[in-house]
Write a protein that binds this DNA or RNA. Structure first.
Lengths: 235, 235
DNA sequence: CGTATAATTGAAGCAGGTCAATGTCAGTGG
DNA sequence: CCACTGACATTGACCTGCTTCAATTATACG
């Protein structure tokens, strides 16, 4: 299947401009909640700048982070399950666009290009989610390695070797399904092995992407051709 | 957001009939491979009858099952990651429809209803995948409980209390990211607690769905309003 | 500058992985 | 018809890696 999406990045279509016109962009600070679980809503959203986490708190008190949302990601636009989760802003000065679902839907029905953009965004989200499913069975060190690789790809943009994590260790732990201490120890061990270098708690210098990917058991295809970069809607 | 998809089930649209006309349905036996990882392909697929597994084998030899595919599920139609996985048939007498991606894409561009059906299918797949992500941090017993609930919803159709698993314990283990022995022990314990009753290795009678769901930490919303049932394309 | 939160590190217990043995069943061939 | 084979399944015993608990240090923010 030919990689679509590139059409999304080039915002030259009049329809995509129409999409942009539908957006209401708001500013948030770290800790703000975009929406609470279970709340019915007619809106869907897209991250413009900053970062957020999609969160669920289970009956027993355990917290689980379903995904981190980065610039270009769409969310809140599907299925009844979707609203089981809360979305909370992580980074300061985060900008999030809000769309009316009905308008989006109507626009999608009118313009195949928009429909395709949404499809692409969801498919990518699915691909990421399924890839993480692969890591279910992995050891903690490999999970953390894989996480760093993912963050490098998503936030870094360029293949620079400095990865800045917008989220806390607790967030990472709840994302990977391990204890905070385990995350800490894994990072310490990676540093001890010379794979990474911690310049600060959330500022990581990757010495060897190869070693990271090896630990993450990243299949070669993914390691070589990293992302269908920013195939999501550019807002 | 209003639950779409019901439109998909009612195959009264001429466009959906056109979709059906694009399909080439083939028959498979257990163990057959629909496609191998890494193979480029211009086709996407839909399960008509039976069951399959989407599989990846990692460098270390560990095998991971990304998802089980049941009647109505679409697969193979997106993103370059998709083709990292193989799809293998589980059940005997499995029928799978094959579509040409380009034709599907063109049809989707022409008919918003078709586009929406695909979008819905992917969104549902995403919802399931993300829900499983929630189970990352759960204990083995809860994972198995959640698995049984999922299978009850997806294969059962009716809320009958007999769940027939089309897959082996090994498949379940690789799906949940635990050892085969752990799956076996969890099932034994559930039976010992009187929650289920094993009529045969793959034939489970559920005595108490409530107890199962409780163990699975299923949020009440999901427990009450189980599935946007069969919202996928009915072939 | 001081307090709350985040992060790291150590020590101990246990859930689940690993290894090994046994049981069950379907298919195959003598 | 029965022995043989190989895949699947269950159960027990042991051991490892992760969680948990606890204490200390670092970082961010008023």
């Amino acid at each position: 299947m030919p990689s679509p999406g590139s059409a999304c990045a080039t915002g030259s279509s009049s329809a995509l401009e129409a999409l942009r016109d539908l957006a209401v962009v708001s500013s948030y600070n770290a800790g703000d909640t975009v929406y609470y679980e279970q709340i019915e809503s007619q809106y869907c959203y897209g991250i413009v700048r900053g970062a957020a986490r999609k969160v669920i708190v289970l009956s027993e008190g355990r917290r689980s982070i379903v995904e981190f949302l980065m610039p270009g990601d769409l969310f809140g636009f599907g299925s009844s399950f979707e609203r089981l989760y809360s979305v909370e802003v992580i980074a300061a000065r985060t900008a999030i666009a809000r769309y009316a679902c009905l308008q989006i839907d109507e626009l999608a029905n009118r313009d195949p290009l928009v429909a395709r953009c949404i499809r692409t965004s969801v498919v990518e989200s699915l691909a990421r989610s399924q890839w993480r499913a692969v890591l279910r069975g992995a050891k903690a060190l490999d999970k953390v390695s894989a996480f760093l690789v993912e963050m490098g790809e998503r936030s870094g943009g360029e293949t620079r070797d400095e990865v800045v994590l917008p989220m806390s260790r607790y967030d990472v732990a709840d994302y990977l399904g391990v204890a905070v201490e385990t995350v800490s120890r894994a990072l310490a061990q990676l540093q001890h092995r010379g794979v990474i270098s911690l310049r600060g708690p959330r500022h990581i210098r990757v010495v060897s992407w190869a070693a990271l990917s090896r630990g993450a058991n990243v299949p070669s295809a993914r390691a070589r051709k990293p992302p269908p970069r920013r195939a999501r809607i550019a807002l």
